[in-house]
């Protein structure tokens, strides 16, 4: 049996989600290979080869893969898929975009966002915003799977897999990358951060969000997250959204500030190790999942917390 992990490549490096997806692949069993596709992604391929437990790295280098456009990327994955019993990619936005396209081209029903491998054909995945866990057994000969990275430990470094070049699969030429407006921040990346400080609608404006949430995050070396309401209101960019339809995080410490705790928000953070909630409404549902709840006005409590942290 052989399993292919499609790496999350960013320029010359690979995201930690790749290491976590490798763990899921190893749990399925058999030989694990990694596909690194990108433009000038030689360094990323070399980084993938260092992940322990990996047999071989397939490296496809072409301008068509530089921006991870779904159409050429899916064609590439399909072109190498015949050698594998399962193809996995992290359930980040690229995986969510590309993998169902791969699955349909292979006439396979994708298994989305697995959180556990029960057997090589049986997986657990959250449904209904994580209010139920579904165990499914796939009847497809080939499995196409996206992996919730936070549910798996990162595979260790220390491997020395062989890197082989694979041919690009062409570009159907139906899509074109125009530009990207990426959030610039020196803070840790949200999905992998050890501590996350999130703000909600209660912050009231982007100025207040920055004034109140950012100093706490910086004091703790934390990533910043937000509820949908805070993103919709334009306090912070879209990629800060934590929840069912945003990012899923599972840090050591999650601090929810002025967030009510709607099920859609809980879906993205309730697997955090320790949860703190600061909310002025003692009935707010967020307190039902919080290890430590502080009923207080955030505009007073958060600056106090920053001071108390010294």
């Amino acid at each position: 049996m052989a399993v292919l992990v499609v790496a999350d490549v960013h320029g010359s490096s690979i995201d930690d989600s790749t290491h976590k997806t490798v763990s899921a692949a190893l749990a399925i069993g058999g030989d694990v290979d990694i596909l690194v596709a990108g433009e000038n992604a030689g360094d990323a391929a070399a980084a993938a080869a260092k992940i322990s437990g990996v047999r071989k790295v397939l490296h496809a280098d072409d301008a068509a893969y530089g921006h991870r456009l779904a159409e050429p990327f899916a064609d590439l994955i399909v072109s190498v898929a015949s050698d594998y019993d399962a193809v996995l990619k992290a359930a980040a936005t690229t995986g969510k975009n590309v993998m169902p396209r791969v699955a349909a081209k292979l006439d396979v029903m994708q298994i989305s966002e697995i959180v556990a491998v029960e057997a090589p054909d049986t997986f657990v995945r959250p449904i209904y915003a994580g209010n139920a866990m579904q165990t499914v057994k796939s009847k497809d000969a080939k499995k196409v799977i996206t992996v919730r990275a936070t549910a798996f430990k990162a595979a260790e470094e220390g491997g020395s897999a062989e890197v082989v070049s694979v041919d690009a699969a062409g570009d159907p030429g139906v899509s074109e990358w125009l530009n990207e407006n990426l959030t610039k921040s020196d803070r840790p990346e949200l999905s992998g951060a050890k501590i996350v400080v999130s703000g909600g609608r209660a912050l009231g404006s982007s100025e207040k969000f920055e004034e109140v949430i950012f100093p706490l995050a910086d004091k703790l070396g934390a990533a910043v997250g937000a509820s949908r309401a805070a993103v919709d209101a334009g306090y912070v960019p879209n990629d800060y959204q934590v929840g069912q339809t945003g990012k899923v995080v599972a840090p050591e410490l999650y601090i929810a500030i002025g967030i009510s705790g709607a099920i859609q928000h809980l879906a993205g953070m309730k697997d955090s190790k320790t949860i703190v909630a600061i909310n002025k409404d003692e009935e707010a549902p967020i307190f039902q999942v919080a290890d430590y709840g502080l009923v207080a006005d955030l505009f007073k409590a958060v600056p106090e917390l920053v001071d108390a942290l010294g």
């Binding site: 209010n131 139920a132 866990m133 165990t135 499914v136 057994k137 009847k139 039902q288 709840g293």
Partner: peptide, 17 residues
């Protein structure tokens, strides 16, 4: 996909104020 079972997610222990 055959649904083998659907279960409750793990519940978090109630915390403190």
């Amino acid at each position: 996909l055959e649904v083998v079972k659907v279960t409750e997610p793990p519940v978090r222990e109630a915390g403190v104020k």
